[in-house]
């Protein structure tokens, strides 16, 4: 075919790897790849599997090589490349016996990219959707059990983000916004451990607005469902003893310094 142009990719410059593997059979290449994986030399493993797939696309090893190269990328924390390779695998081999693992690995790659509660949550939602997909498609596999566990963590994460924004608005005495956020945690994330705090914050806000019976009702629901929680003690203290008798009242100085560091 035409003169082999150097297409600017750095890896193709290294002739040594290509000479070594140009003639060897897919089996030996695949075995070398697996060995590199076990030795945790992920970049080399990914390269070997890519060569298998490109040089011998019709061998049975090509399909497994695609999956293993995706695993290598995942272990190298290059999640976007891993997701790309897995998408290709799922499109070409939907009936493969390890398809459940492919979906699961793809969901994990998304899950690893979740930011903390202060930052963008779209990756969390994508990860939750992918995990839900795994749980639906392959209900009775170990992957599904782990996916359900990770979804709980993801839901806790989303609730955490709602609480962060709720506290931001409550700090600035924008109570309508804060109520909206805390109500959403109470209604949509009942299984997370943020619910007691959300209920307590609602009690604080209702008292600040003057809706004392509503505050009492909310505190009673908190007490009924989470009797031992510290949040209930705070709400109780607010309702019974009056505004400043709560257990943890930060001094002005400590509150300001606390927020700097």
């Amino acid at each position: 075919c035409g003169g082999s142009l150097w297409d600017g990719q750095q890896e193709s410059l290294s002739p040594t790897l290509r000479q070594q593997t140009a003639d060897s059979s897919p089996e030996s290449l695949f075995a070398a790849g697996m060995e590199a994986l076990n030795a945790e030399q992920y970049p080399r493993a990914v390269q070997l599997f890519d060569i298998v797939e490109r040089e011998h696309p019709y061998s049975a090893f090509a399909t497994n090589a695609k999956l293993m190269s995706a695993y290598g990328e995942y272990m190298r924390n290059r999640y976007t490349e891993a997701i790309g390779a897995l998408d290709r695998f799922i499109q070409l081999h939907p009936a493969h016996r390890d398809i459940a693992y492919a979906y699961y690995l793809r969901a994990l790659s998304l899950y690893e990219q979740i930011n903390d509660t202060q930052r963008d949550q779209t990756t969390t939602e994508q990860a939750m959707a992918a995990l839900q997909d795994v749980a639906n498609r392959f209900p009775n596999t170990p992957y599904a059990r782990d996916a359900r566990l990770k979804m709980d963590l993801g839901r806790d994460h989303l609730a955490g983000h709602e609480m962060v924004v709720g506290r931001f608005y409550q700090n600035r005495r924008l109570y309508v916004a804060a109520i909206g956020r805390f109500r959403r945690v109470v209604e949509e994330y009942q299984t997370t451990n943020h619910v007691p705090e959300a209920l307590h914050r609602l009690t604080e806000i209702y008292l600040a607005l003057g809706l004392t019976e509503e505050a009492r009702r909310t505190a009673s629901v908190l007490g009924h469902n989470f009797p031992g929680s510290e949040w209930y003690q705070d709400s109780y203290a607010l309702l019974v003893d009056g505004p400043n008798a709560g257990t943890e009242r930060p001094g002005w100085w400590q509150r300001n310094i606390g927020s700097i560091f």
Binding site: G160, N171, A208, G246, E248, R255
Partner: peptide, 24 residues
């Protein structure tokens, strides 16, 4: 109708429920 005088000056509790987020 409730006005500002009905509200009470509430001190927010500073404690925060930890969330499992990957603290970077």
């Amino acid at each position: 109708r409730l006005g500002m005088e009905d509200g009470r000056e509430i001190q927010m509790v500073s404690r925060v429920t930890p969330s499992p987020g990957t603290e970077r």
